[in-house]
Design a protein around this nucleic acid. Structure first.
Length: 455
RNA sequence: GUCCCCAUCGUCUAGCCUGGUCUAGGACACCGCCCUUUCACGGCGAAAACAGGGGUUCAAAUCCCCUUGGGGACGCCA
């Protein structure tokens, strides 16, 4: 059987990590099995759904490289379908119209809270036929009494829940929109979804959805409820405990593959391997090899994974993510090679390559003490004179030149490396000094030294 | 409160299904040392866990039960 899966976010905010992880699992699983991956937008909450959110979700998925084969299907385009099926269920006496007013429900909820009980809809309209004319109503599902609801989960086995724990839940709201449990089931059935991979927080919804599948005479898909990602405080990830959106990570210089890798490794593993390419993940991913317990999000490790991918990136690919205008004459290849091994994110990378952007660099006032002593100036000038004689500005030549210079003058590397670094990069932190000189090349090197000597 | 899920180092995890090779392996973070021209990278090392109690068995991190702990759900949100 061909695998068909879906990722079904609701456009009520930016894409967050938990959602992204289920998207990744669906994506990997589907690719692994050469199936079809559908994107479906569950915008049945008129109040909270926004186009901006939808745009951001699409943008983020695209940036991550989580591509879908079909969609996005928008649920609000399909209202007539849900309405019709809800009405069918009413006609079959499997659902019913409920005319209870909001105020009445509020009252019941308050009452329940007072008695420290959980509110349950009292089935007031379940069997009534004295329906008011032109009044607003919702459609509720007739949850059967004392029935054992059973469904299976590929990770957790068979799960059984007594129907008495559920009340007559709403499937169609008074604004004519379906509720989540209803539209999800209809779409999963209509779209031929074979595998539903979603967060563990949906486990309790699955019992309701099983009931709906039954009422529709449809076979439910195979469920896999993936463990949740928790914040540092061990509760569901939310803005409160530091959850960031994909956009945030992008802005912080995290690579898409690092997010994919880190998030996939949260709950999934392949022996001791920590770093995966996308192809490797697709190749190795096994839905049956997921951890059942929740995992705490650790930004330090994400950063580390990011640094590992940064190191592995080819200079060609690196050029696409780096935001540096290399000045003409800069040895870009060498610059990238020496910068990428040290950076943890692309922000750092950009920062460390700043000295490559122009012919001259600005030297901050804080370095005056380090640079403008008579000795320093004299040493730099002397080394400069030697360096000018070099035919090639390869690292090796520069190094040899330096060693001869130091020996000749009885100096230590330390005495010249720091000022030279500041003069050439405007910073105390940079790639190795020989690399820096080689990256700049003879011309820019000379310009910067002369500029210093003249100041 | 009710229902559901889960339980190996601080964190992510390997091992669990198919008991013995586990004096429990790896990674992040932390600490120490080394490398060193800065910042880093890297290398080496240390510390660090089978929640508790009962079973089953010659043998349990691994199987079963209970307790405890954690998480999730209980919306005209998804």
């Amino acid at each position: 059987m061909n695998i068909i899966t879906r990722f079904a976010p609701s456009p009520t905010g930016s894409l967050h990590l938990g959602a992204v992880r289920t998207a990744i699992f669906n994506f990997l699983f589907t690719k692994r099995n050469k199936g079809k991956f559908i994107l479906r937008i569950e915008d049945t909450d008129q109040e909270r759904s926004t186009n901006d959110s939808l745009d951001e979700i699409l943008k983020s998925l695209n940036w991550l490289g989580v591509d879908y084969d079909d969609g996005p299907h928008i649920q609000s385009d399909r209202l007539s379908i849900y309405k019709k099926i809800a009405q069918d269920l009413v006609d079959k006496n499997l659902a019913y119209k409920c005319f209870m007013k909001n105020e009445e429900i509020e009252e019941l909820k308050n009452q329940a809270a007072k008695e420290k009980k959980v509110y349950r809809y009292p089935r007031t309209w379940r069997d009534r036929t004295d329906h008011p004319e032109n009044a607003k109503y919702v459609i509720r599902f007739k949850t059967p009494d004392s029935h054992i609801i059973e469904f299976s989960d590929t990770l957790r086995g068979t799960i059984k829940i007594g129907s008495d724990n559920l009340d007559d839940f709403i499937i169609l709201k008074s604004d004519g929109y379906p509720t989540y449990n209803f539209s999800t089931v209809i779409d999963d059935a209509e779209m031929g979804i074979t595998n539903v991979i979603r967060g563990e927080d949906h486990l309790s919804n699955t019992s309701k959805q099983t009931l709906i599948f039954d009422s529709l005479n449809k076979k439910p898909p195979l469920f896999t409820h993936v463990s949740m990602i928790l914040g540092k405080d061990k509760t569901k990830l939310s803005k409160r405990n530091g959850s960031k959106s994909i956009q945030d990570f992008k802005d912080e210089g995290i690579l898409p593959i690092a997010i994919l890798n880190y998030l996939a490794r949260l709950g999934w593993s392949h022996g001791d391997q920590e770093i995966f390419t996308l192809d490797e993940m697709v190749d190795l991913f096994d839905i049956n090899n997921l951890t059942k317990s929740p995992a705490i999000f650790d930004e330090d490790k994400l950063k580390w994974v990011n640094s590992q991918h940064l190191k592995r990136l080819s200079n060609n690919d690196l050029l696409k993510v780096v935001k540096v205008d290399f000045y003409q004459g800069i040895n870009i290849d060498l610059a990238l090679s020496s910068a990428k091994v040290k950076a943890k994110d692309t922000i750092m990378l950009n920062e460390s390559l700043k000295f490559c952007e122009s012919e001259l660099i600005k030297i901050g006032d804080e370095f005056i003490d380090d640079l403008y002593t008579k000795d320093t100036k004299e040493i730099i000038e002397a080394f400069y004179t030697d360096a000018l004689d070099l035919k090639s500005f390869e690292i090796k030549e520069i190094k040899d030149c330096m060693n001869i210079f130091l020996e000749k003058r009885g100096l230590k590397m330390k005495q010249i490396a720091l000022p030279l670094r500041i003069i050439l990069t405007g910073s105390k932190a940079s790639p190795g000094i020989f690399e820096v000189i080689s990256i700049l090349g003879k011309e820019i090197f000379s310009k910067r030294i002369e500029h210093y000597l003249e100041s």
